[in-house]
């Protein structure tokens, strides 16, 4: 049995925002795959929930003014099959394939994944390398916060209690961008990440020029961008030596945590190995593409 609570059932977004505005203690319920588990475990005891998972205004993926815009209540399963995400967010789509399991993916929303503020949120590293922003809406105002600044600690975000996450958006990537996501779990399917990593490589016509973005999940209190390594790599060229140095730097500059899924020392070793492997693969993949015009993974 779940503990007792009141449940508000708005039919439209304006109605939901009106209800949220009346009290700062109304907790949004989207897919429920984190919140209902926490309620059952008595980890949180909210008095009042508001069901927002079904709101039409929070659904749908569209391209608008150079941005990909994803409604906060879009499910992980929807993203896994969406053609716009295949085109403009391949790195995110890779994460949806190893996210939880098919049953959970059919309910879990992208907004809930970020709003929960878990360091292990699997959508976060891909969205960080896409330079995503989180759209927050309350009754009278709307603001956009870079994802990098949105999650501030374990289960902590900058969201005000009266605000809803209404959308996630990122600028359409320039030509020549490729991304990759890798999740390390204790088993192949349906595992919380021990570590997850997303890498985005952008190359201009000249082989030598490269911009790199790297993000890590489940290694620090929040999902993070690995700025020192990114700066070292910035401008290129991506030689094996510079990749090896960046991989080392990524590990050294990260304050890794120890928990039941792995020690800090283990995580640091894995960071070095994975940054090196993924960057090498991406660098070689894009080179190949240039030479034989073969299909690589677009980002």
């Amino acid at each position: 049995m779940l503990p007792e609570f009141e449940l508000l059932m708005p039919r439209t977004l304006p109605e939901a925002l009106e209800m949220m505005n009346e009290s700062s203690r109304v907790i949004p319920l989207a897919g429920g795959t984190s919140l209902l588990v926490d309620l059952r475990g008595r980890i949180s005891r909210p008095q009042m929930l508001i069901n927002i998972g079904g709101l039409d205004e929070l659904r749908g993926v569209r391209v608008e003014e150079g941005y990909v815009v994803v409604g906060s209540a879009v499910t992980i399963a929807d993203l896994k099959h969406n053609v716009l995400i295949a085109k403009h967010g391949q790195v995110l789509q890779q994460a949806t394939r190893v996210f939880a399991n098919p049953l959970v993916r059919n309910r879990a929303t992208i907004g809930g994944n970020l709003a929960y503020g878990s360091p292990a949120a699997d959508a976060a590293p891909p969205l960080l390398v896409l330079d995503a922003e989180v759209e927050l809406t309350c009754k009278d105002a709307k603001r956009t916060v870079p994802l990098k600044e949105f999650i501030t600690g374990v289960r902590e975000t900058v969201r005000h209690p009266r605000e809803l996450v209404t959308a996630i958006r990122w600028p359409i990537l320039p030509e020549g961008s490729v991304g990759v996501f890798h999740k390390l779990g204790l088993r192949k399917a349906d595992a919380i990440s021990v570590l997850s990593i997303a890498v985005m490589l952008h190359r201009k016509n000249t082989e030598d020029y490269a911009q790199v973005r790297i993000a890590l999940g489940a290694v620090a209190p929040t999902p993070i961008r690995v700025t020192p390594a990114e700066e070292l790599l910035s401008g290129g060229p991506l030689t094996p030596e510079v990749i090896a140095r960046a991989a080392q730097l990524a590990s050294e500059s990260t304050h890794a945590i120890s928990d039941i899924r792995g020690s800090a020392a283990y995580r640091k070793r894995v960071i070095t190995a994975l940054v090196k492997r993924l960057l090498t693969n991406l660098a070689e993949g894009t080179k190949e593409k240039k030479h034989n015009e073969s299909e690589g993974y677009h980002s």
Partner: peptide, 27 residues
């Protein structure tokens, strides 16, 4: 398990298979 780990409660909800332990009846 009542927390989405085991799938014993799986049903189709509007054509999508889900864990019925993680859906409120009102939803």
């Amino acid at each position: 398990c009542e927390k989405g780990d085991c799938g014993a409660c799986a049903v189709e909800l509007n054509g999508k298979v889900i864990n019925s332990c993680l859906v409120l009846a009102w939803q």
